[in-house]
Design a protein around this nucleic acid. Sequence first.
RNA 1: GCCGGGGUAGCUCAGCUGGCUAGAGCGGCGGUCUCAUAAUCCGCAGGUCAGGCGUUCGAGUCGCCUCCCCGGUACCA
Length: 531
Amino acid sequence: MTDSGDRYYITTAIDYPNSRPHIGTAFEKIGADVQARFRRMEGASVHMLMGNDENTIKVPQRAREMGLEPRAYVDDMARQFQDVWRALEISFDDFIQTSEERHHVGCRKFIQAVYDAGDIYKGKYAGHYCTGCEAFKTEKEVAEGSGKCPNHPNTPLTWVEEDNYYFRLSAYRERLLAHYAAHPEFIQPESRRNEILSLVESELKDVAITRKGFAWGIKTPFDPEQTIYVWFDALLNYITGIGYGTDDERFARLWPADMHVIGKDITRFHCALWPAMLMSAGLPLPRMVFGHGFVYRKNEETGEVQKLSKSLGNVVEPMELVEKFSAEAFRYYFMSQCPFGGDGEFSFERFASVYNADLADKLGNNYSRTLTMWARYLEGRLAGEPVDATQWRKGIDFQALVTSVREQVGAFEYNVALQRIWREVIEPGQRFIDETKPFKLAKTDPEACRAVLVNLADWMRAAAILIKPFLPRTAESYYRAFNFDETTPWDRVRYADALTPLNQVGLHVTAPLSAGKPAPLFPKVEVRDAG
RNA sequence: GCCGGGGUAGCUCAGCUGGCUAGAGCGGCGGUCUCAUAAUCCGCAGGUCAGGCGUUCGAGUCGCCUCCCCGGUACCA
């Protein structure tokens, strides 16, 4: 799946710390995390990097508003972001803040390398300048503000020309096109690739990469009056975060990245500007860039689908859902309901409905059923001759199923993979109980009842393994409900282990039970109360 | 305008390089079990696959045209 052997370096986009993360940003992180967890299961040595993009003009502004030093402000925001990511079980290995020294050092080294390569020249940037923001406004912003700055409608914009440095992006057009052709998998999914292809084929303009007069940010080494501008600075986090300019050995070990997970809106920066920058600096390119879709908010009453925005007042904070439901439920909803490469929708009502149907009634309920019967009919412990533990999945080509689910998860087709797991693993387990009726067999044919229950143990083991990247906690509860861990330790389980025969020797329930029952994994909720 | 992506059952989505009577989940309706979180399981519900033309023995699945929705259009999360 990756040609970099057993190492897998995956990144997510770094976020502006102006406001706290919402469910859309969480969507990206979870999608990347599922991949990271999956690759770890497959035996890769995974490094997952996340971070915040702090060298923006809004940072000192916001800090001032809150009466803080910029540094204190970004540190506090970084802590808050990480709290959310941890609550969502995002298994990141490192978190970079672009205000950190390691980033500054690496940035300066990089821009100097590009400068030395002759790809940076001094030019004039001209645009609408807002004295209130002390910044240039884009044409789009000006249009939105009907000719004025959206933030300062009473301050007239002035047309200002400024000397600053340009990166010779246009010079890389041919090389970029050659790279896309030679590596068709470079841009994912397909739709994003087409978009970039036509963009680069049409025209590439040089980009200004420095600005004048900012105290906050990274100074340009060859001209201390200039500060490195947003994109040139931000993209570099992917290399400064693994030691570029500060730890050569580590950088050599981890670069190039196997996967940049980003939002579809910033595809061009990652698929055109970034590779060109790397080419100029003489560094290898990342193997893939995945531009995921967006999460929209569906208004329950009107049925209207809207963008998440502060002004519409429809922003949903991840912690709200985590507290009301659980991180597992949060992860499950977005991974199963929103195709990662496309757009998805969120509503509280639908969230609760999916939660009840797939998690409470299926995953959770069958856990309770199985364990209760084990306790009641076998006193939690298996004795006697081994039985055929694969009865529950007769009629399913389990080998083919595991193979295709692996491919789908590896290709970020999470919603499809989960649907298959539910339809061909989770639900057959429930149907098996219904068809064999172990609760009746217990009275008429204890041996047959025992065989059914052994099958259910195998079912739980297989389910645990397959859902592990998506629902790490639940998967672990499933796996540790029996002493499976003695045969294959939980942290070393691979997808292929779902196919290995169940070890029935000494098999027994290890889940905590009270009065012969486990605590519900996903307590059912009222759909109406969801919001 | 230009470029790109879409339009498949009430809702959310699958349908790979064209081929059995177009699928799943949810919702809805009827029935069932009792191990379980009043959960499960079974059956039913019939959508001109946006519309038209064409290629083909055969098209959601390819080509062209029309309508509608969305995104991008560059230094913007």
